[in-house]
Structure formats: structure tokens, C-alpha cells
Design a protein around this nucleic acid. Structure first.
Ligand code: MN
Ligand code: MN
Ligand code: ZN
Ligand code: ZN
Lengths: 138, 138
DNA sequence: AAGTAGGTGCAACAGAAGTGCAATTATTGA
DNA sequence: TCAATAATTGCACTTCTGTTGCACCTACTT
């Protein structure tokens, strides 16, 4: 708890009760979460607060946003020393068509992509869809 | 014109006036288009018609849908012998942060991605963002 | 020409994202 | 300590994209 407070403070944001709870929840879940997911977990709090909390987290490099192709944005806690606010977040994401969960595969970095003449890459997004380990293990 | 009719018929859909015009428009544009883009180009036609036309096109392998990370779906004409209805569409897409256009880089196939034990890939989406050739050439 | 299947237009709805403003809570410093 | 100030939260409302139901129209079939 104290640890989470320090993490938030170290990233320059004030560790309010709400923020600590949301951070804790996201760490425990281990999968990427949509605003709606968090909304359902914190029914006593307002959507806008959760929305702005995620935005603040993102702006301060606490979470990164993931576009997994489902149409709704997902968010996941950044790794310890990730600096995705500065550079791009290089790991790939996996979306399971069976359980509908999206996870960060932080160990799996995105390979270098070469582009035609004149194109300059700033960011790369790689999402693999299929069946996750939990679902294929049945 | 006759050519477009034949293309549509060969894919099993009726070549109505509307469909021919939309197909023609998408071929000429050469970039991936959102429903709204097409809507603005065909103000006399209804959103729903355009929406369902794109859906029909997609279901019959005439266009493929692209999620470029902007939050709105884009559509682009499929290559001559692409069979993205059956397998996944393997080329990568590029979104320019300057002109906001998304293009298919059909020559650039997505490299093989290896996944952790238990994960099974069915589809891969790779989007590179940055500055396109037209915009960097200035 | 009548019947039928497919295509189109209108209206309405759902969900996600985003904004303005007032109320509340936390921090500052006199 | 306590008023002033700044940050955070909650409520209401809007916009945008995607989607569906239903009625009407149009084009093929026999
Ligand atoms: Mn991630
Ligand atoms: Mn493409
Ligand atoms: Zn799964
Ligand atoms: Zn450009």
C-alpha cells in the first residue's frame, strides 16, 4: 500500500485513495482492462473519475493504452523501467478470441520492420489474436 | 465500369449502381477509408446503405477492414488474388501522423511472430505509425 | 405481370469517449 | 489554526461510431 503510494508519487501524481485502489486493482488483474471493466469493479465511483484517472496514469507513464482491435481501449500497468511516454512501447499484445482477454507479452519485443523509401516509423502496434494458454489448455 | 461489374459479380454480389460507385471511389482513393469518409463523398446516399455495402464487400473479400489505432475502422480494396476472407491478411498498414492517412503496404508482409507456450495465433495486426513518404518529402 | 428476394432509406438505439461546471477534498502559507 | 488556493471528483450532457428494425422500393424470376 505504502509501496503504491510511493510509485504514484515518484511519477509525479498525488496518491489519492481512488488512484491507489485503481492501481492496486490493475496490478492484481494482470490483464489489460477497459474503462468499463474498471467501472464495474468500482460501482461507487463515477465513470469520469475513472476515465480521468486512467488518462492521468497514461500521461505519467503508469499505464499504457492498448488497442487490441476490439474497438474499446484497454489499459495495462507499465513495467518497472518502461519509458513508453518517451519512446514507443515495444512489446506485443495478445487478444484471446475465446476468453476475450488481452494480455501484454512484455518479453516478446516487436521485431524491426523495414518500410518503403520515405516512410519514417515513430510507433509500432502489433496485436496477435488467437487462443491463449489458459483457453488452449482445456 | 463493365470491369467493376464483373469483379463484383465474380465475388457473388449484385453490381448495383451504388456498389459500383463506392467500389470505384475506393479504388481511386488508394488509401484506406472510414465510413465517414465515404459518407462525405456520397452525401446523397444514406449512412446505413454505405455501412452495409462495406459490410457486404468485406464478407465477400472485396475490401478488408483495417484497425489503424485511430479508433475508427478503415476499409481498403483487397489485392487481386488476396483471400483474406479465408486466411488472415498478412500485409502491414501504415498510418501517417501528419496527413492522417492510412495505407496498405501490401508488399510488406508481417514477419512470423513466435509466442509463449500454449498460445495459438489466428490473426495478426501490425500497424506502423509515423510520417509517410508524401509528408516526409517536403 | 405478379411474386419474391434483395437493396435502400429513415428512425432510433447502444456504447465509448470526451467536456463544462459545480461540489468536494487536499494543500499551502499567513 | 484557518482562510485562500489548487487539485480531484461527481453529475449532466454531448458527440461520434457502429448497429438494428422496419417499411418501401427495385430488380430478377417464372
Ligand atoms: Mn502492454
Ligand atoms: Mn490492407
Ligand atoms: Zn483465453
Ligand atoms: Zn502523410
Amino acid at each position: 500500500m505504502r509501496e503504491i503510494e510511493e510509485t504514484l508519487e515518484s511519477k509525479g501524481i498525488r496518491p489519492t485513495a481512488m488512484r491507489i485502489l485503481i492501481y492496486k486493482y490493475m496490478v492484481e488483474k494482470e490483464i489489460a482492462l477497459a474503462l468499463t471493466d474498471i467501472e464495474n469493479a468500482f460501482i461507487k465511483s463515477d465513470r469520469t473519475t475513472l476515465y480521468r484517472t486512467l488518462k492521468t496514469f497514461e500521461e505519467n507513464g503508469i499505464v499504457h493504452q492498448i488497442d487490441d482491435g476490439t474497438g474499446t481501449a484497454k489499459y495495462a500497468i507499465c513495467e518497472e523501467h518502461c519509458n513508453c511516454e518517451l519512446e514507443q512501447d515495444l512489446h506485443l499484445h495478445f487478444h484471446c478470441n475465446s476468453c476475450d482477454e488481452t494480455v501484454c507479452l512484455t518479453e516478446h519485443k516487436i521485431p524491426h520492420i523495414n518500410l518503403p523509401e520515405g516512410y519514417k516509423a515513430k510507433d509500432v502496434n502489433l496485436v496477435v489474436k488467437g487462443i491463449c494458454d489458459k483457453c488452449s489448455g482445456q
